[in-house]
Write a protein that binds this DNA or RNA. Structure first.
Lengths: 188, 188
DNA sequence: CCGTTCATGTAATCTGTTACATGATTTA
DNA sequence: TAAATCATGTAACAGATTACATGAACGG
């Protein structure tokens, strides 16, 4: 049920489904992704449950917006979720699965180019996260340790994204070295 | 469609649905989890598609086993997936989502105990992975760089699990220090 | 006039979890 | 004899993706 709670968490201010999608893509994509259609569906369900209320507003540009906000029951549900123990141990990494079975190809050259490509992808991710961090640092004088609680917690998760991206890149570098060395040994 | 390919990848040797669940839990749980019921459903689908074939065998102990193995089409499908570019960027971390919105509680004591608990969980995961690594090291004299390709690639993914677990623990330690410091400042 | 952004959603399908149902064999 | 392990699955529900459908406003 995490997506419901992530949406409740984002609704600190009233937002439309479209706004929520922007937040997913721009702020939290390093730990959660959601499709637009899933967001609309979940908003409808949360409203039916009485955790959200909505009102239609004219937009400055484009069609009318349907803006959602938390009800007291919604805030309570969010707080309960936050006080749960950490939800941990169900992460999935498709690229690790690919690497795990790549022995099947009997082609270390393929493994090497796979890991190099992976490293590039992770470097892009890292650059984005660091850009976000830099922007934050510039416009918030109290960054990072005296931010208001909400931004402070967001900054902590940004650090996590950066730390993990760096760890993945270090691991890629090690794998690249090891596979290169093995390739040299095997072609001797 | 990754679960289909993960199952194809595990079927280097013929295995029953029950065996496959054991492999998920014992060898690859740090990058992919699956429920028994999902495994049986997926096996059935893969057989319908002609990527697997099955035969029923008597078991040494317990009821008959239905043992699946790759067809040539199955092997081809696996190899195509392995030659795809790395599937990357859709990881989800529910515990990061929880932390991200925890500012809502306005209770840094709660944040602190959350992160301490998270750290303990990650230390358990790390210990398991290191145990697996140690066992591997003991019984395989060529570990890690001269293993046959299949085991070699598995060892690479084990390293990744260990590297990520360590990175998460380091991040927890930093967060714990920072939050402790802020709590002291705020209660002065 | 064409592409992008803004803005809403539905339908079909696929993936994943939880609960249920059955029954033999082994170990304590 | 009771619990754990071996072994199969189904049903219902929840979560996620992809494709489809509509249309206004704005910038080039």
């Amino acid at each position: 049920m995490s997506i419901e709670h992530v949406i409740l968490g984002l609704l600190q201010k009233p937002l439309s489904g479209y706004d929520i999608k922007q937040h997913f893509d721009r702020m939290i994509s390093h730990f959660w992704a959601a499709e637009q259609s899933q967001i609309y569906r979940t908003l409808k369900k949360l409203e039916q449950k009485g955790l959200l209320k909505s009102k239609v507003e004219p937009s400055e540009r484009g069609p009318d917006r349907k803006v959602y906000s938390l009800t007291p029951a919604g805030r309570k549900s969010l707080q309960e979720w936050l006080r749960n123990e950490p939800i941990f141990g169900d992460e999935r990494y498709a690229f690790v699965a690919q690497l795990c079975f790549m022995g099947e190809l009997e082609d270390l050259g393929q493994t090497l180019s796979f890991v190099r490509q992976l490293k590039e992808m992770q470097e892009e991710t890292l650059a984005e996260l660091q850009g976000c961090d830099a922007a934050f640092r510039e416009c918030e004088p109290d960054y990072p340790d005296d931010l208001p609680h909400r931004e402070y917690h967001f900054a902590l998760t940004l650090d996590m994204g950066i730390a993990l991206a760096k760890a993945k890149i270090r691991w890629c570098n090690q794998v690249i070295k090891r596979v290169e060395a093995r390739l040299e040994r095997e072609t001797e």
